[in-house]
């Protein structure tokens, strides 16, 4: 960029330039407008780079019953000697749902507090859901635990991350026994190792299957299909408009 074209801001930092620099510093999530690289696309959209905005973090007040949950959790953590900002790295409130991002070291403690504290009382854990963000270096594997409090009729979500290089997360089976099969399923599909699980074996795939199918770097595994004289490629090879 030539300097003749830059507007004269009189020595002040240019907010537009700063925002642009921030944007360029974000991680690239995917490139290209059309999903696969094999379509022979000549539109010129192949050079598009979609960047991921910074992870959301909601500021207080969170609204509805979320503040109370955060306060009681903070009190309980302090009683046990941990600090709220360490144990809960990020709080996200979006679309009427509360998500607590918890570093994996503090997961069991936070879960135990959520379950036992009388004002929180999240008795029921509704399983583990794994998500694989291939582009998010250092935080590729996420495990999401939706919790339900029947006493107070509330919901909250815990989210834990682990890098691909070290995919270990402490197991919640001692706190919520229902996580037994859910953690096995998440191991089966994502390769997340839940430390402390009594029997972390494959549950859906055959015992000797290689690979973890729901990871983003695992192919869908479809085959081309012949139909009435034409051959239709499998879904992962077709043109995608992501």
């Amino acid at each position: 960029m030539t300097s003749e074209n830059v507007p004269d801001t009189g020595g002040q930092p240019d907010p537009a330039a700063e925002a642009g620099a921030d944007r360029l510093a974000q991680q690239v999530e995917r490139t290209g407008m059309f999903g696969t690289g094999t379509t022979g696309d000549t539109s010129g959209y192949g050079g598009l780079q979609v960047r991921r905005p910074d992870p959301l973090s909601t500021a207080r007040p969170y609204g509805s019953y979320f503040d109370e949950i955060a306060d009681r959790l903070a009190e309980g953590l302090e009683r046990d000697g941990a600090a709220f900002p360490e144990a809960v790295s990020r709080v996200v409130v979006e679309r009427g749902e509360l998500t607590l991002h918890v570093p994996r070291e503090h997961l069991v403690a936070v879960a135990r507090l959520l379950r036992d504290d009388p004002a929180l009382k999240f008795e029921m854990c509704l399983g583990v859901s794994g998500v694989h963000y291939l582009w998010d270096a250092g935080r590729e594997l996420h495990a999401v635990y939706p919790l339900l409090s029947i006493t107070h009729n509330r919901r909250v979500r815990l989210e834990v991350t682990a890098p691909d290089a070290d995919p270990r997360i402490p197991s919640l089976v001692t706190v919520y026994p229902t996580c037994d099969w859910h953690e096995r399923e998440t191991w089966d599909f994502f390769g997340l190792i839940f430390e402390g699980h009594p029997a972390l074996t494959r549950i859906e795939m055959p015992d000797d299957w290689k690979g973890h199918p729901q990871r983003k770097d695992y192919p869908l595994g479809g085959i081309p299909v012949e139909y009435r004289g034409a051959t239709v490629p499998p879904p992962e090879d077709r043109r995608a408009y992501s």
């Binding site: 509704l126 399983g127 859901s129 794994g130 998500v131 694989h132 999401v144 939706p146 229902t178 099969w181 859910h182 399923e185 729901q214």
Partner: peptide, 12 residues
């Protein structure tokens, strides 16, 4: 969808 997971009641 980037990821859809169903918490199925029969599984639990």
């Amino acid at each position: 969808p980037y990821r859809v997971h169903f918490r199925d009641p029969s599984f639990t």
